[in-house]
Design a binder for these strands. Structure first.
Lengths: 213, 213
DNA sequence: TAGATTGTTAATCGATTAACAATC
DNA sequence: TAGATTGTTAATCGATTAACAATC
């Protein structure tokens, strides 16, 4: 039950480990030491070992880590060994782009439907994913098992829709709207704040130029 | 010249302060204390004061902070008081979505052109933003001042294009491809790794369910 | 002046790095 | 067995929080 809380910083690094290990695996390498991985990834070997040991001992003294095994184990930790059915709310440009992006499926994130309010989208589909109307949402969620709802709708409507989704039992929101959602404890929200990301870039440009003067 | 290095954690919080202050400003509030802001934003008042004091004393004892002034000052720190001309490389779904997203412009991030290789896009435009061909890129960059290049092209082509851009003098890359770019010291890269974000969400779903058992 | 709240120093907490005994 | 490399403890570093003197 009560597992030790893993820090956010560690979780944030896991997908990157997973990605590098996948590439190393594809290149046919069988084993790797924390030292080798360290130099590839530009993090310390110590950090790699500490991070991994939060979840258990995946390596072997004198040998290192078996790439395939470690890759799979990190996959399990991240939950990408399972299928995560998703729906996209908002059939605008962003919703379309996400639905068209095949990389998600490779990791088990499967978009089942797109919801929108625009009536001219009735009957359309994106890469085989049907576009449904928002008023069908609740009945849809009663029939179909959905784990993650992706929010790509206008800021003004997000809160209302999020509440509706939560009321229907959705426990995970991937939020692209530029606001913070206030949700119950058992609902997880991951934000993608593109404007914030751009501002951080802008800060770094500005501060770099300042330093040079 | 040699300013004290501001930590990444602080920079990451600045856009959020900026957003909240913008909303508070719009609601007509003139002054705010770190305590009030603290309860709105769910961070400690102490952190707010520490963060701000990295850049100077923006408040006044006994009074708090003038919302408009603080908002503007953070804007300057982030560089959103300036115009940042951008180009988008990759006219696919994502490039289109970004070009259509008007929120960037509000903060000074203006997309000037979209570049693609697909010849059927010649002469087209998105919201008035022209789509140009990749072979025009270098001559375009000689004529037009561009600060940020947005990379929304297939993984396989990103590195090559990034090098080309850097050779043309671009100093800032906003990278949507799922790989880490290796760039010179004077070039800044901000990554948007959507798959990583989704995996973090997935981890939190999985670990939450585990705890509940 | 008294009250409020900042700016800033000190204390605490957590994360990263270093070191090394355990062990393959 | 000797060499390599992990798992893990200890040391360091940095970030957050608490406390309070300065001051509006």
């Amino acid at each position: 039950m009560e597992e030790r809380q893993i820090s956010k910083a560690v979780i944030k690094r896991l997908p990157r480990y997973y990605r590098y290990l996948g590439e190393i695996l594809n290149s046919g390498v069988e084993r790797i030491s924390s030292g080798e991985l360290s130099s590839k990834m530009q993090v310390t070997a110590s950090q790699i070992r500490q991070d991994l040991n939060n979840f258990g001992g995946f390596g072997q003294q004198g040998y290192g880590y078996n790439v395939k095994y470690l890759y799979d184990e990190i996959g399990k930790i991240l939950g990408v060994n399972q299928v995560h059915p998703m729906i996209v709310i908002g059939g605008g440009n962003f919703g379309h782009a996400l639905a068209n992006y095949a990389d998600f499926e490779k990791n088990g994130f499967v978009i089942k439907a797109i919801f929108d309010v625009r009536e001219d989208m009735i009957g359309t589909s994106v890469r085989g994913i049907p576009v449904l109307m928002m008023d069908e949402l609740e009945s849809y969620l009663k029939k179909v098992d959905v784990e993650i709802a992706v929010l790509t709708l206008p800021k003004s409507k997000v809160k209302e829709v999020a509440n509706q989704l939560i009321a229907c039992g959705i426990k995970a929101l991937w939020n692209f709207a530029h606001l913070d959602l206030d949700v119950p404890d058992d609902v997880v929200v991951e934000n993608v704040h593109l404007v914030d990301s751009l501002m951080q870039l802008s800060y770094r440009i500005t501060s770099y130029e300042k330093k040079e003067k």
